[in-house]
Design a protein around this nucleic acid. Structure first.
Lengths: 249, 249
DNA sequence: TTTGGCTATTTAGTCAGACAAATAGCGATC
DNA sequence: GATCGCTATTTGTCTGACTAAATAGCCAAA
């Protein structure tokens, strides 16, 4: 019925998970996905039929269909015979799906959307920090510490520093031991990444983010849920403020 | 570039969105999806190759491939030439995707998973209720009221009553005006639905859920965020308690 | 004139079979 | 022993044909 992984040979596999666009169906899905989330196609619009569309895009009908299946799986479109493939209402879109988020950020997302993402962070992350303070194990604590040290030495100006920032927030989510909650990490990671982009756009890092990060860490390390919640609240709140200031330019 | 909807003829379209399994690719995706989330296939396992799999399932290779694209879009599997299609690590799964959630509930979900979902509700819904109290418009308020009246007259023993319950929670999310937050409604709706199933399994409705619902509504209607947050906290907390008691059987 | 059902048409859905591209793993060579 | 290149296997892509479903519009009947 199934084959088991032979050895520890799955290391290579996770490597380039973002190579999802390297195949034709993936890149077509991305093209159409970006067109949809950017508003180029509106909900209710009907795409050209498969024959015409695949010809216009210079790909086979099967490749185009696989792309449509991807979009349908993420709730962006809906197909049926005779009627065709139609862009669904926005409230059906899987906005927190990593790929959909990436498509949003490909064409600059609206301020409203960003605001929504931050509001979500403000709701989820403090609560997650509190849970993490209760449940984290030593390994997770160690990974948080390493991430912060890396972040400190590399600064947010480097790709490695930004990755460390995301790692820290990821690990906090993971330490809640709540799998559904953890799936929000990609969404939150997207918001985190965007914060940095905005800050750097202004060519200034308004404040040193490290002290606030360490406060969160210390509270989680000391197993103090309330303190962790408050520290995280402050951290996310400041990030929101900085981003808002940058947008206001 | 695009065709517009001719008339107001999109009403029919949203009707049976759950007919996603009526086509072969959808039903194959469901079959495999259930097998994966239920643990029949483990992360790291490699599926049989496309030729063999499609023959075993008595479908064409293209239909099978479209099913795999759906699963890949939801993060359950990953394909690459030569290596094959492999079940991804659990932390990559889109656990909050409506279909993935449905697949989980198809084979009874683990207690841990349910607990995670409730914890998420406990985090998100009170905050959402507070935001809704600030931002709801009259139309949303009216829909909440209608939902509760329907719920009251039909009781949770009927399908219509349960739908009304979900409508209420949905509308609260919607009234936050936060699109990313609103996408969590399907996940929360799943948890709501499950609560009712558990309650009815015990053949008893432990307590009348209406007073607590009305308290949430009143607070939102009166634009009192803190009061709404507390009322929702209590509502979800009691639901969790009831569900937990039913599981403990 | 309205209604109701039938049919023609359009579209996605499914199938079969071929070839292309990528790559993991093996084997030859240095 | 290390490195390089080959090869077998798997997914990826393409083509073209046929099937099935859904709809719009026609036509007949009331």
């Amino acid at each position: 019925m199934r084959k088991k992984t032979d050895k520890a040979g799955d290391g290579d596999f996770a490597r380039d998970s973002l190579a999802a666009t390297s195949r034709i169906h993936g890149s077509i899905a991305r093209t159409l996905g970006v067109a949809i989330v950017s508003g180029q196609y509106q909900p209710g619009d009907i795409l050209n039929n498969e024959i015409d569309s695949s010809e216009q895009l210079q790909v086979s009908r099967s490749a185009y269909r696989e792309a449509i299946r991807i979009l349908a799986a993420k709730g962006l479109v809906e197909s049926r015979p005779k009627t065709g493939t139609r862009v669904t209402e926005r409230n059906r879109w899987s906005l927190l799906d990593p790929e959909v988020l990436a498509w949003f950020f490909e064409s600059e997302p609206s301020e409203e959307f960003l605001k929504g993402l931050y509001e979500l962070r403000m709701i989820v992350e403090p609560a997650a920090a509190a849970l993490a303070a209760e449940r984290r194990d030593d390994g997770q604590l160690e990974r948080m510490r390493k991430a912060l040290i890396q972040m400190e030495s590399q600064t947010l100006a480097t790709e490695a520093g930004q990755a460390a920032d995301r790692d820290f927030h990821d690990t906090v989510l993971e330490a809640t031991g709540n799998a559904p909650l953890f799936t929000l990490s990609s969404s939150i990671g997207a918001a985190v990444r965007w914060t940095t982009i905005f800050k750097q756009r202004k060519r200034e890092l308004p404040r040193d983010p490290m002290p606030d990060h360490w406060k969160v860490f210390d509270a989680i390390a000391a197993s103090r849920p309330d303190q962790a919640r408050q520290a995280m609240e402050r951290l996310v709140g400041l990030a929101l403020e900085d981003t808002r200031a940058s947008i206001a330019d």
